[in-house]
Every structure is written in C-alpha cells, then in structure tokens.
Design a protein around this nucleic acid. Structure first.
Lengths: 332, 332
DNA sequence: CTGTTAGCGCTTTCAT
DNA sequence: ATGAAAGCGCTAACAG
C-alpha cells in the first residue's frame, strides 16, 4: 500500500502537490498534474481516508439506525437517503439496533467518536430526555418516529389525517362496526388512532373501546388482534390494521376461523409494504412517500450539519390511499 | 469536545497515561486510574477514533455488501454476523449495492481507503477476475454466492443436495410432471437445478427442457414463470421455485388462472423467508441455516484478517426441508 | 508506574 | 506553481 509520501517521491514533487491533485484544489500546472496522476495510476495508489478524516475532522458518513433491516418498509426510505447522500458527496451506513438500547449506544459511539458526521434515527430505543441531550450536541434527525417532546428535526407523514382517511374509506364502503388493531406508546400510532376516532365521530358512529385492541407491529400481533376482536359478542365487519404485516396476520387468522376477506370482513393495512400487493387477497393500505421521506430526511440532515437548523422542526409529507382486494365493496 | 491532551492536563498526568486507562493496558496505579477516570467522566470525554484508527491502522469495522436490505432473507444472516463481530470487538456496516457495479465500487473504496478492515459480499456485481484480484489484496469473503473460479472463502449450503431434496419431496408426493422456475448464471441456482435433474433421473422420470424456465428472483419472475409453464400443452402438476418470493408470484398467478394450490398444483419455494409461513397457503420450502451462515462467515472473516487463511476455502452448512400447505398431499 | 517522543497519512497555511 | 512544516488525536516504544 503506497502512501502519499511514496507517490510524491516517485513523482519528484512534494506531498502537498500530490494532495492538491488528489483534491483538485489549488493551482497545479498541467505538467505536474499529469506526472503525479501517472504515478498514482502506476502505483495504484489509494489515499488512506483515516489520515484525511483525522485532518479534516469530518468523515462524510451518515449513520442510519434501523430497528431491523428485514423490515421492508425502510428499504425505499434508505434508497432515498442514499441517493441524496451520494449527490452531496456523503455515504450512508446502516445499522440494526433491534431497538436494543445497549446496541443503540454502541452505534451512537460512532457519532461520539467522530466516525460519522450525523445520525438518522428510523427507530429509537433511548428515552426522550437522553435523546434531546444527544440532539443538542450532535447532528441528529428523526425519520418517521416522534413524540411531542422531541427537540430535533422530524420527517413524517400526517398520521392523524392518514388514520382519518383509512377509516373514512371503510365508512364509505358502508361499514359501521370498524375496529382498529394498533400499538401503544408510539407517536405515529397514537395519531392514526386519533384520526380513526375523528372519522367515526364525523360519521356519527359510536366509539366502542372494545374495538381498539393493542398489539405490536408484527404478523403475530395481527393474529392475536383478530382473536381478541372475534371473541366479542358483536365482532366488527372491518378492521383497520396499524401496518400491512398486522393486516397479513389478521387475514391469516380470519381465514383460519373460516371467515373470508373481504366478503365477511374488510381489512385495511398501512405502509404499502411490498407484501401488500402480493398477498392473497391483496391489501388496501395507506402508502407513505417512502423515497421522498428518505430524501427529505437526508436533506434536513445536511442543513443540520451546516448549522442552518438548530431547534425542533417538523416536515410532513403527503400520503395516499391505495384500494385493493381486501376491502372490495360488499353489502353488510 | 475535549481531547486526550485536555484530559491529561486536567488530571495532571501525561497523555500516555490517559491512553493507558482508556485501553486498560499497561500498568497504572489505582490512584492515577481513578483520578484520570474521574476527569474523563467529568469532561464527558469521548476518544476520537479517527486518531486511534490512524495510529493502529485498523478500524475493527467489517463492511457487508447486500443487494438490498429489503430482502428479508439476509436479516438473520446479518444478525449472525453482527453478534459474532461484537463478540470479537468488531462492528458491522451494511451497505446496499443494488448489484450496481458503480455503487459496489464506491463502497469497496471503504476497504481500499482503510475505512473498514474487511468486506463480506452477500452479493457481487463485479466479474470473477476483478473479484479475485481484490480478494488477493484484501480480506474478502463470500456469503451464499459463488462460482467455481472464485478464489476466496465461501460460506453456503450444498445447493445441489438442496435441489435434490426439494424435488424428491415433490416426487414422493406422487408428482411426475415437475417444473422448475429458476434463474440463469447464478452458481447456487445452477447447483439447485443439477439437484433437480439428478432427483428426476434417480426416479426414472424424463427430463423435459420445457419444464425449466428462467426468470429472476422476484415476485414477477414467479408470475411470468407460471404463465410460461401453463401455456404448455402438458402443464406441470408441481413447480419447484428458486425462491419463496418466486413461489409467491407463482401462487398468485395460478390463482388468477383459476387454479388452486396445492389441490391443482403443488408449489415448492426456497429459503424459508419470513413470508413463507405467512402466505396463503403457507409455502413448503428449504430452510437455510441463516444465522449460522452469518456467524460462520464472520468467523472466517476473522481468520482471513489474522492471515490464517489465504486461498479459496468453502464451508457448506446443513439445510432443512420444511413442509407446509403449498404441497399438501393430493392425488394426481 | 509514568512521561517523553515519534509518527500513523493526510491537508493546509505560509513562504517563496 | 510549488514546497516546508505544523498538526489533526491518538498509541506505543523506550527510558527512567
């Protein structure tokens, strides 16, 4: 592995000059440039970025924290982030935290130890107070996660309106007994539930607390949610699920109970995961503008790094209702 | 951001001593250690790893190249890699290449520029010759990808036997007309197809080239594969799909054509993706020991870094047949 | 047990 | 247009 020294020696110039051609900076005569470049090519020289990064005290790396890379929801978001980062001469690192606070801390050390210039949280494990302390000291932005006390830029959709739209869709199809399988203590779910409530109210339908069941974002959450709902005396005819994966679990369990979707029960998902159009039946859902969310998040990150943004700041992007088989109209 | 200098000054010791307590190395008196540690805590000092890494010329980072993080197949593999890396004081970075050779090159610069100590390919874009050149110079290992000319450690299952087992399962169920939807030019698929052929031969079934259709690993590949097969005069009664995603596309398209799985056609997947048990019907498949594959891959990486391994080396782990609804016995 | 010192590879003033 | 030299923050001989 040649160093810049060896290139300089072999080209008969100083290291400063080699550095200049490396960075296309300063003024270098065409002759010298060619000479240096040919030595670089000949030796197959690759600059050691550890040296550069130390000197510049920046790495042009952004860390993205995900709960789990397996969650296909984030794939397009990450693509949006990556493209935007590359356009700006940055690179993106992805790490899984499994929402494990210890693991999260390990990766946050990358930030504290100057290995990355900023962190995007697509998932948080730590508490709000701690988070705000971190966000005060370092460039940090939140993607698709939030609560009202967070002091950092946040990029998301308007989950309240999205919940309203999802529920309204079911109401328009004639459903009166509409349940929701959701999760607890997550800002976005809370907002979606508020939208659900407002839609029922606007349609003069009665709120029934038994129709709101708390599970988690998983396939199994959907199974358990349906079990719970269909033990009720008056089971719902439509279920709004907090994610497509939950919707899949719901459909699977309904099928097991001998009920047909959408004939007996309409199912609504959320996220427009890749599984939604593929499933049998395909799943009606709310699509989030995932690529744009990623893109915007990264743009905001650069603003934060430049210091143009210092306090909390929220960006809401547009969602979209996508109607598929799981809510095909039928009479009730 | 305090530096080691400031800690040293404030603690009234030399930077060497601070470094020693930081690394738990050398001998430091209990008194000094406590003093230094308290200053570290007080200043909330975090060592700048750019300095350390430059000095040590290692980063204890391993880069994992994936085609796409959205592919849930890799999630457990990555978990196995991460756990093993953490046990050894290393960290894992994940990058998407989209099998784009330019993007792959961007990330490989991390290796050439000393930002990571090794690269694991779970997906390759470059040609074999180039790959071998890289593998000669740097610690590189391949996970679940290969061809016979590769000169680097490879961790995989025995795809030929797996293909044999999958096909034999269908034969045992009484099927005689067994097709395969596969992909071209991929080492593992090639081996699985050889296994498929050998199973047919061992059962004295005739090989029918029309029953082998080439698509890609996607959902749409499954749809197109079925369309092609069911335009034949004698369509198959069972189809071995090269991946679970392909199987999903296959089932969806059969349903569209009014055929039932498994009643009319049996479908076999591969990989035991998370979707396989969730799908309707659930999908019979070959499970790869994904966590162990990841674990073993990382272990081999460390051997390579230590220099204990220099040439090509192949590790084959055990696979497993998982029978589900999509091949439930029925008479033909 | 502790301090002094050189240097990892690079960039960037400051001279010339 | 080019070079000399300082220094980013850290570690690791070496000396004492």
């Amino acid at each position: 592995m040649p160093t810049i020294q060896e290139v300089a020696k072999q080209a008969g110039v100083s290291v400063a000059t080699v550095s200049r051609v490396l960075n296309n900076s300063g003024a270098v005569s065409v002759n010298t440039r060619n000479k240096v470049q040919s030595v670089i090519d000949e030796l197959n020289y690759q600059p050691n970025l550890l040296g550069r990064n130390l000197r510049r005290s920046e790495t042009r790396m952004i860390l993205v924290l995900l709960e789990n890379i397996a969650n296909p929801f984030y794939s397009k978001i990450v693509k949006g982030m990556e493209d935007t980062a590359h356009e700006n001469g940055y690179n993106v690192l992805i790490c899984n935290t499994n929402t494990d606070i210890n693991l999260e801390n390990v990766y946050l050390d990358f930030l504290r130890n100057k290995l990355v210039d900023g962190v995007i949280f697509a998932c948080t494990a730590m508490g709000t107070k701690e988070f705000n302390k971190l966000a005060e000291q370092y460039p940090v932005v939140l993607c698709n996660e939030y609560n009202k006390d967070i002091k950092a830029p946040i990029i998301t959709i308007d989950n309240e309106v999205a919940g309203y739209d999802a529920t309204s869709h079911l109401i328009k199809l004639g459903h009166r007994k509409i349940a929701m399988i959701t999760v607890n203590n997550v800002g976005s779910s809370y907002d979606r539930m508020n939208g659900y409530r407002r839609a029922l109210k606007d349609a003069s339908l009665q709120l029934n607390d038994e129709y709101i069941v708390y599970q988690n974002f998983s396939y199994k959450g959907g199974i358990r949610g349906i079990k719970q709902l269909f033990e009720l005396e008056e089971p719902p005819t439509a279920v709004f699920c907090i994610s497509d994966l939950v919707a899949v679990g719901a459909i699977k369990e309904l099928k097991r109970q001998g009920l047909k979707v959408p004939k007996d029960v309409a199912i609504m998902g959320f996220d427009n995961n890749s599984i939604a159009p593929m499933y049998e039946p395909s799943i009606t859902t709310i699509a989030q503008p995932r690529y744009d969310i990623g893109k915007k998040t990264m743009e905001i990150m650069f603003e934060r790094i430049k210091g143009n943004l210092n306090s909390s700041y929220i960006v809401k992007l547009e969602h979209e209702l996508i109607v598929r088989e799981s809510t095909l109209p039928s009479v009730h």
